[in-house]
Every structure is written in C-alpha cells, then in structure tokens.
Design a protein around this nucleic acid. Structure first.
Lengths: 143, 143
DNA sequence: GTCAATGCAAACTTTTTGCAACTCC
DNA sequence: GGAGTTGCAAAAAGTTTGCATTGAC
C-alpha cells in the first residue's frame, strides 16, 4: 500500500536517474514519513542522520524537485514558513489548519467531493490542488 | 461604502498613531486599490510615486503591520511570491486561483457559506480566514 | 521636548543557482 | 570516461530588525 524505500529508489533508477547515497537516504526518509509534516530542512536533517553522512540542503531541494517533477511528491503550505512535503501516493487530502491552536487536520479529498463540486457548479472553478491549507477554527477552539 | 483616504488617516489618528507623509500616501494607495492585488512592494512604489517622496520598504511593512494589527487590513497568499494586501472593509471573499492560466477569481464569502458549513458539520472545522487561495482550474482552462 | 516613526543597513528565512570536483553507471 | 550529482558559496526574494536620526504633536 505504501511505497517502500526500495520502490522509490528503483523507480528513480528506472527513470534514468542515478542512485547516490544522498538520494537513497532521502527516499528512505520520505517512505517512512507517513503522516508527518516534514520540511526540506527536516528531510535533510533526518536523511543525513539516518545515513550517517552529510547532505547539503541544496541537494535535498534538488532531489525533492526531481520527485516533484515526476509527480511522486507534492509540497504544500500550511502557513507561513517552510513548505512541507508529501509523497503523492499518500491518500490525497486537503489540510485544514486551526489558526488558534495550529492543529492541522487532514481531510481525504473524497470527503470534500460534494463541497468542491458545488464550487465547480456555482463558480466554474474546480479545485485541483491542495497546495495551500484552508485556515479556520477547529472544534475545540470553537468552544 | 468604501473607506476613503481620510477615513483611514483620521482613524489612525484616533488610535493614537502619528500621521506622516508616508502613512498618508500609503492610506491613499490602499483606499484606491479597490479590486487590485497589491504586494507590499507595489504599495511602496505607488505611494512614493503618488506623494512624490521616497518611502522605505521597511516603512511600508511597518505601516501595513499597524493596519493589520488594527484589523483594517489582511494579507493573503495567492501562490508563491509576495503576499498581497486588502483592506478588510472590502467584501470578504475567498480567492480561487487557476493553476493553469493564473487567473484569480474572487468569490464573496456568502457564496461559500453552504460549502463551508458543510465542512463545519462534517469535520468540525470552520474556515475563518481566506489567508490562502484555493488552487484549481477555471472554466476556460477546463476545456 | 518627547516619543513615535523613519531611513538605512544588516540580518533572516526559505529556496535557487553557478560551478568546479566528484562518482555512479 | 563522461554525464549526472554533489557540495560549497553566493544570490535571490520577501520580510524583519537594530539603531541613530528625524519630525509629529
């Protein structure tokens, strides 16, 4: 169900990219970051730590770019500050961020189908990308 | 209906802030930027131009911060790049940005009431801030 | 005269880029 | 061996901050 590190590394190879220690480590971090919100900086720290090597931040950005251009990865913005990365295979979801407590809730995109198709009907606009979070107030903070 | 430059400047004074040439010019630019999407850099350029004085970018940021902390102004993100500013009095609206052509459509928040209250019912989450645009595909680009 | 506001320069954060050195295939 | 990758250093973009000077009231 979830992509493994090997899935990612061999897919990279299949696409004609070279496998380096840095890339292997980054693949591993992404494969393991199931529900986490990791920034590129986080990815670098973890990958370097995990593989016991040093990896430059620019290498991470470049590798994430490769993944993103292959459509395997997306980055989203939950607020100001760094974007966070997501393997695309993870169930597509929108991010709802509570402006009061900062809590971030993932809502599977299917659950927004009705909501979004209303938008499309009324405004001819079909939301396609969950690139920016929706900011609001969560249940707890509403009380 | 719309706030005038004088509304803004005298409101500033009433709040105990000092009126400077820079602030007057910035107020004028904001009051006149009805449906436009101006960044802080745009505001600086226009205000300086309009008043025939030089205004530092940091002054603009500081003044916009004052307005924002008074709740008179919001800044929103339509995509990567600079945030854009809005007087709060302008009808509240959400921004729909077409990822294909870049077109940005403003949707009055009332028209999203149904859509958003569904979200609240189902996910206990009430969207309150239009801080980030919704990214998708517009009618034209869908064809 | 005081204190808020400004300009200027410098720092900051996140991300991108140029380039020589390296190393994967 | 040769092209794809890397690290390093520097730049870029947007925004924030420190501080001495200015100017509003």
């Amino acid at each position: 169900m979830h992509l493994s590190t090997d899935d990612l590394t061999s897919a990279l190879r299949n696409e004609g990219f070279r496998l380096t220690a840095a890339r292997r480590a980054i693949c591993a971090v992404l494969a393991e970051s199931h529900e986490e919100h990791l920034s590129a900086v986080d990815v670098r720290a973890r990958a370097a730590d995990r593989a016991g090597i040093q990896i430059d931040q620019s290498t991470v950005y470049r590798t994430l770019d490769v993944f993103e251009s292959l459509g395997w990865l997306h980055h989203v913005h939950l607020g100001h500050g760094p974007g966070i990365v997501h393997l695309s295979e993870k169930t597509d979801h929108h991010h709802l961020v509570c402006e009061s407590c900062g809590l971030s809730v993932d809502v599977p995109i299917e659950e927004l189908d009705d909501v979004f198709s209303q938008l499309t009907e009324r405004h001819g606009f079909a939301p396609t990308s969950m690139h920016f979070a929706l900011i609001g107030t969560c249940k707890n903070c509403a009380n």
